[in-house]
Structure formats: C-alpha cells, structure tokens
Computed example of a mutant assay.
Amino acid sequence: MEPFENRVEAGRRLAESLGDYADRDDVMVLALPRGGVPLGLEVARKLKAPLDLMLVRKLGVPGHRELAMGAITGHGQVLNEEVLASSGVDDDEVERVARDERAELERRAQRYRGDRPWPKLENRRVILVDDGIATGATMAAAARAVRAQKPAELVLAVPVAPPSTLQRFEDLADRIECLMAPESFWAIGAWYRDFSQLSDQQVIQMMREADELPGAGNE
C-alpha cells in the first residue's frame, strides 16, 4: 500500500469512492478540523454538497483528564454513562467541565465559522470526514453526537485506519468508507508523504471556498 501524496489527493480519492452520494439535496459533509478539512472540501466539491465542521471537545474526568466521561460538539453533548458510574462524578462536576470545554469549543467555532448557525442533521445523510483514525476516540465522540441528531444515514469516511479501530464503528455508523486498513498501522502521518500541520488561517480559507461550492446553500 502506497502512502497518499497529501490530504488533497486523499480527499479526491475518498470523494471518488463516495460518488453515489453526488447531486443529492439531503447530503451533509462534516469535517473534523484541522486535518479533516482539506479532505472534506474535496468530498463536498465532488458531491456538490454543503461542508461544515465537526468540532469535538473531550470531557475529561476531573483528576484524570485523559479518561473521557463524554464529549461536546456544536451539535450536542454525549456522555459515557459507564465512565460516569465508575468514576463517581456527579452532575455538578460534569456541568463544570462541560462549561469550560463549551467555552473553548465556541471560541474555535467563532474563529472557523463565524456566526453561522449549526446545520440541522435530522433526516440528512451525514458524511463524517477526517484524515485518518488512530485510536478512534475523537471520531467516536463525533459519530455519537451526530447519531443523537437522528440522521437518515451516518457515513464514516477516512483514507486510512487500522482494522481493529474500524471494528469499533460497525455498530455506530451505517457505512464505513476507508481506502486503506493496514494491519501495521503505526500512525496516520506514516500514510502521507506530506502530512504538514494546518494553520487556523488555512482552515478559515477552506471554509470560505466551501461557501462558494455548488450545494453550499442546502444547509
């Protein structure tokens, strides 16, 4: 398996594999920033579908922030009841953490999206796009947040991910579109010749380009 040249090339190849969603008025492409945005732009361009962002902030257990008790996105909040039960975190602590993370999410949303309202996802065919999946924690939070909005279909679309991680999404997504699933995974960046970090300004510019695409008014 040869690595992708860069995110744009990976996005174009991913878009080709999603061609059966082209020219539909019920499709919504959501990209996870920053790395997923170049791919999401290529997918939206090919499908003539609107593009927006899926911003995710983990809700870490107080004192053990690496342990996620849930996540918050612009589309809602999702809690992990098992972690909450085992950690003994009460509602007030959850709300305190959520309030802090919500403020950071809103700051990033304002920077990337301005004052646009979040799109309605109910009864839409939502395609979640990122530049790859490693552990799957962030994508899982994003997928659960979308699921809570009752879409007609949830598609997880990435260029590369390990098979063991993809298995975790079989019950969460209606369709998984992954171009490569190497057993020897190492890291997402290992599957790109150019995996340069994107700046906030690049994301902002890509979202401006997305606003000019055919289908951008279907949100």
Rank of each mutant, 00 (worst) to 15 (best):
M1W: 10
E2G: 14
E2D: 15
F4D: 08
E5Q: 09
E9N: 05
G11I: 01
G11P: 06
R12I: 05
R13I: 06
R13H: 13
L14R: 13
E16C: 09
L18R: 15
Y21K: 00
D25Y: 08
V27P: 12
L32Y: 03
L32Q: 02
P33F: 14
G36V: 07
G36W: 03
V37A: 09
V37F: 06
P38V: 08
P38C: 05
L39I: 08
L39R: 04
G40R: 12
E42R: 09
V43W: 08
R45S: 12
L47I: 03
A49H: 13
P50A: 00
P50D: 02
P50K: 02
D52R: 02
D52L: 02
D52W: 03
D52I: 04
L53P: 07
K58N: 09
K58F: 09
L59E: 12
G60L: 07
G63V: 01
H64R: 11
H64I: 08
H64V: 07
L67S: 03
L67E: 01
G70P: 04
G70S: 03
A71N: 05
A71R: 02
T73Q: 09
G74I: 04
G74T: 10
Q77T: 15
E81R: 15
V83N: 00
S86C: 08
S87G: 10
E93S: 15
E93G: 11
E93Q: 15
E95S: 14
R96V: 07
R96A: 07
A98L: 07
R99E: 14
R99H: 05
R102M: 15
A103K: 13
E104K: 09
E104N: 07
R107S: 14
Q110S: 12
Y112C: 07
G114L: 07
D115T: 12
R116T: 11
P117G: 14
P119I: 02
K120Y: 10
L121K: 04
R124N: 11
V126K: 00
V126I: 03
L128R: 10
L128M: 11
V129C: 06
D130V: 05
D131I: 03
T135R: 01
T135D: 00
M139C: 08
A143G: 11
Q149S: 04
Q149P: 04
K150E: 14
K150H: 12
L154R: 02
L156T: 01
P159V: 00
P159Q: 00
T165L: 02
R168I: 07
D171A: 14
L172S: 02
R175K: 15
R175Q: 14
R175D: 05
L179M: 03
F185Q: 01
F185Y: 03
W186P: 05
W186A: 14
A190P: 00
Y192L: 08
R193C: 05
R193K: 10
R193Q: 11
L198E: 11
D200R: 05
D200E: 06
Q202T: 13
Q202S: 07
V203R: 12
I204S: 08
Q205G: 09
M206W: 15
R208I: 13
D211I: 04
P214C: 02
P214D: 01
G215K: 01
G217M: 09
N218F: 10
E219Q: 14
E219M: 13
